Computed example of a mutant assay.
Amino acid sequence: MAEENVPSKDHWLSIGEIAHRSGVAASALRFYEDQGLIRSRRTAGNQRQYQRSTLRRIAFVQAAQRVGLALAEIKGALDSLPDDRTPTRADWSRLSRSWRSRLDERIAELERLRDDLDGCIGCGCLSLQRCNLYNKADRLAERGPGARILNVGIPGE
């Protein structure tokens, strides 16, 4: 007789099945596994198999990435959940409450970008000294001449 808490063979899916059902490439699944976001077991032929509950963890990862969380933050959130079950609606609600302020910040940032963009369209300034998008109010002049930012934002802000 099988143990009660041990998933049956039917609860395990190949990497191809997980990729197909989740819409996530197998390479991304292997990366997620390397990052500790999901786990698999290996068959005698060294093929990855995932519990069906991994599908919900993958959905969780994708939703958290859309919020703008880094994989390390997502891993921390997943690590706070019990290993023996999938994330529930209550789990998601608890974790997503802490992300709400981040979303509010992103929305405000996008609104500022939209508003600054209106004044920039067609200006033709081609100047990082005057550009409201890259160097509003010439904030970087105090750091000296030359390139101070790349397309990743302004350090220290």
Rank of each mutant, 00 (worst) to 15 (best):
A26G: 09
S27F: 02
S27G: 07
L29P: 02
Y32V: 03
Y32W: 03
Y32M: 08
E33I: 07
D34Y: 09
D34E: 12
Q35M: 14
G36Y: 03
L37F: 02
L37R: 05
L37M: 06
I38G: 01
R39F: 00
R39C: 02
S40R: 01
R42I: 01
R42M: 03
R42C: 00
T43Q: 07
A44K: 09
N46H: 09
N46S: 06
Q47Y: 09
R48Y: 07
Y50S: 07
Y50E: 01
R52T: 12
S53M: 15
T54M: 03
T54N: 11
T54R: 09
L55W: 07
R56E: 13
R56I: 13
R57V: 03
I58E: 00
A59G: 13
F60N: 00
F60V: 11
A63D: 05
Q65W: 04
Q65D: 05
R66G: 06
V67R: 02
G68M: 13
L69I: 04
A70F: 10
A70W: 05
L71H: 10
G76Y: 05
A77Y: 01
A77W: 00
A77S: 13
L78W: 08
L78S: 07
D83F: 05
D83K: 05
D84Y: 01
D84F: 06
P87F: 01
T88C: 02
T88W: 01
R89E: 10
D91E: 11
D91L: 11
S93H: 15
L95E: 06
L95Q: 04
S96R: 06
S96N: 02
S96V: 09
R97S: 10
R97G: 07
R97L: 11
R97K: 06
S98H: 12
S98D: 10
W99F: 12
W99E: 08
S101T: 15
S101L: 11
R102D: 11
R102P: 02
D104N: 04
E105I: 12
E105V: 03
E105P: 05
E105M: 08
R106H: 12
I107Y: 02
I107Q: 04
I107G: 06
L110A: 13
E111H: 14
E111S: 14
R112L: 14
R114D: 15
D115S: 13
D116W: 11
D116A: 12
L117C: 12
D118Q: 12
D118L: 14
G119A: 08
G119P: 06
C120Y: 09
I121Q: 12
I121P: 13
G122E: 08
C123R: 10
C123V: 05
G124I: 11
L128E: 14
Q129Y: 00
C131A: 09
C131Q: 04
L133W: 05
Y134G: 15
N135M: 15
K136F: 05
A137F: 12
